[in-house]
Simulated scan of single mutants.
Amino acid sequence: MPLTFTLDPAITPDLRDGILDLWTAVSDAGGAVGFVPPVTRQEVRPELVRYLVQMVEGRTRLLVGHDETGEVAATAFLTRNTHRLMTHWVWLYTVMVHPRHQGRGYGRDLLAAAADAARRMEGVQAIRLTCRGGHGLERFYASCGYKEVGRVPDAIRVAPGDDRDEVFMLLPLG
């Protein structure tokens, strides 16, 4: 059953908690979303609060996917570039699908919904994102139309002696 996507949902305590639960589950499953397992909701909370503040400021938009039971199953944050010469593209951050839903095509659905949302944003012509090397994520994003446009070797240290590349990807919306 497909996810139901909502752009800019009202932030309720249930939604906030659902995002925290999702982010924790994705991180604990080894997902490359800013943490290294194990992680707690209390560790994730400040990062979510940072996004919520950006949403209030009008710089970031939340795309959330709910499953058939109404639980948060996927999220992504679209953030406007604040540099006046780069307002024609947005960043896509913290792209997550709950581990229990992986393998069902929901990641592709989330990226398609994010692209649709970005196309409706005034003046936006492309989406940029970064991903952590070593997970095969760049192949997944490439299969969804993104092109690798840069790479910083060993930019992400997940543990002593375990450095990963930061991979920059671009999706033109034209």
Rank of each mutant, 00 (worst) to 15 (best):
P2E: 09
F5R: 03
T6C: 03
L7S: 00
L7G: 04
D8I: 03
D8Q: 12
D8M: 13
A10Y: 10
T12P: 11
L20G: 11
W23K: 11
W23I: 03
A25Q: 08
V26D: 00
S27R: 09
S27Q: 00
D28S: 06
A29V: 11
A29G: 04
G31C: 08
A32F: 14
F35S: 12
V36H: 15
V36E: 15
V36G: 04
P37V: 14
V39G: 06
V39Q: 13
Q42S: 15
R50M: 12
R50K: 13
R50Q: 13
Y51G: 12
V53F: 07
V53I: 15
Q54P: 10
V56D: 14
R61V: 14
L62S: 09
V64M: 01
H66N: 06
H66D: 01
D67L: 03
D67A: 05
D67P: 03
D67M: 06
E68A: 13
E68S: 07
T69R: 12
G70E: 08
V72E: 00
A73Q: 02
A73I: 02
A74L: 03
T75A: 09
A76P: 01
T79S: 10
T82I: 07
T82W: 01
R84G: 01
R84S: 09
L85T: 00
L85C: 05
M86A: 04
M86N: 08
T87I: 09
H88L: 04
W89M: 02
W91T: 08
Y93H: 02
H98D: 10
H98S: 07
P99T: 03
P99S: 05
R100W: 07
R100L: 06
G103C: 08
G103Q: 08
R104C: 07
Y106R: 07
D109Q: 11
L111N: 06
A112Y: 03
A112W: 09
A112T: 06
A113Y: 05
A113V: 04
A114I: 10
A114C: 13
A115Q: 02
D116N: 14
A117G: 06
R119E: 04
M121T: 13
M121A: 14
V124W: 10
Q125G: 15
A126E: 11
T130P: 01
G133E: 04
G133V: 06
G133N: 09
G134V: 12
L137I: 09
C144A: 08
G145H: 01
G145R: 04
K147T: 13
E148C: 10
V149A: 10
R151E: 06
V152P: 00
D154E: 15
D154Q: 15
A155N: 06
I156N: 09
R157K: 05
V158P: 00
P160K: 11
G161A: 10
R164P: 03
D165C: 15
E166R: 13
V167H: 01
M169T: 07
L170I: 02
P172E: 03
